[in-house]
């Protein structure tokens, strides 16, 4: 599932017109890497909710900035699994 989430993330970044060249699992999503600003991170959280039906609350979405692509995909996967387990 991680691979699919990674594809979803890259597609989202492309639609949001961020440069995805050179982005890999170690790239940080926030200003230190892919350079997503706070509203873009908020939009990303909405896209996750729309796609996977799981919601990240405000403080969780804010933590996306410090996450790498790999960490973000794992976090989404964990949330989806937790949601489907209940």
């Amino acid at each position: 599932m991680i691979a699919e989430i990674r594809l979803f993330l890259l597609r989202s970044l492309t639609e949001m017109r961020y440069d995805t060249d050179g982005i890999d699992d170690d790239t940080v999503l926030g200003p230190a890497g892919a350079d997503l600003e706070s509203l873009a991170l908020a939009e990303l959280a909405m896209r996750v909710e729309d796609q996977y039906g799981v919601r990240f609350l405000d403080d969780e979405a804010e933590r996306f900035a410090a996450m790498t692509v790999g960490e973000f995909c794992a976090a989404v996967e964990n949330r989806v699994k937790a949601a489907s387990a209940t």
Partner: peptide, 10 residues
């Protein structure tokens, strides 16, 4: 709700 962009206000 998901139809409303966080970028709407700017």
């Amino acid at each position: 709700r998901l139809g409303v962009s966080p970028f709407m206000l700017p």
